[in-house]
């Protein structure tokens, strides 16, 4: 069941668009914000509100890479793997992160703290390499800076 808060926020979004379906992406994000990801039950409950079948809505949800249909860690790291960051040292940064967290791209650390995902160009090409942790953008990354950042988000090493 959708929580009262989720329902309230979704109702508000519905007013922004001409059709109920159009509010779908925003509504999926609302569920994701409160639950960390979008579970099957969320798809089922939301599809009823939007006037879609659960499969239709799942087709939309799985299209967009920032809608998570699997559980993710407490913090999601989005590491830019696009050309400017790649030229400026993406591979070094990625292998450092993998070593520190003990996971590869698409995986969640065993303690549930971090999920590591690739992301296209974050628009920080002049400050490459770059990544996001949750909603924050970090740039000019070095292994030292990575250590400092993941500690700030709770990494105990």
């Amino acid at each position: 069941m959708l929580s009262e808060k989720e329902t309230h926020e979704i109702e508000k979004e519905l007013k922004q668009y001409k059709t109920r379906q159009a509010a779908g992406v925003e509504a999926l994000k609302i569920i994701q914000r409160s639950r960390g990801w979008v579970d099957d039950e969320g798809i089922k409950d939301l599809s009823a509100i939007l006037g879609m079948t659960p499969d239709e809505l799942d087709g939309v949800a799985t299209f967009y890479n920032l809608i998570f249909r699997k559980p993710v860690g407490a913090h999601v790291i989005l590491i830019c793997d696009t050309v400017s960051c790649w030229v400026m040292g993406y591979e070094k940064i990625l292998s450092h992160l993998k070593n520190r967290l003990g996971i590869g791209l698409g995986e969640t650390s065993p303690d549930g703290l971090f999920t590591l995902l690739p992301i296209p160009c974050l628009g920080a090409c002049d400050k490459a390499p770059a990544m996001m942790i949750d909603e924050e953008l970090y740039w000019n990354l070095t292994p030292e800076k990575i250590d400092e950042l993941i500690k700030r988000y709770g990494w105990k090493g």
Partner: peptide, 26 residues
């Protein structure tokens, strides 16, 4: 209105963008 999307480069293609705004696969 400000519409905040949820990823995928193809959304920048103008007709895919319209599908995205309508809440469909882009």
């Amino acid at each position: 209105h400000l519409h905040i999307s949820a990823g995928r480069y193809i959304c920048g293609e103008e007709t895919a963008l319209l599908n995205a705004l309508e809440g469909r696969r882009a």
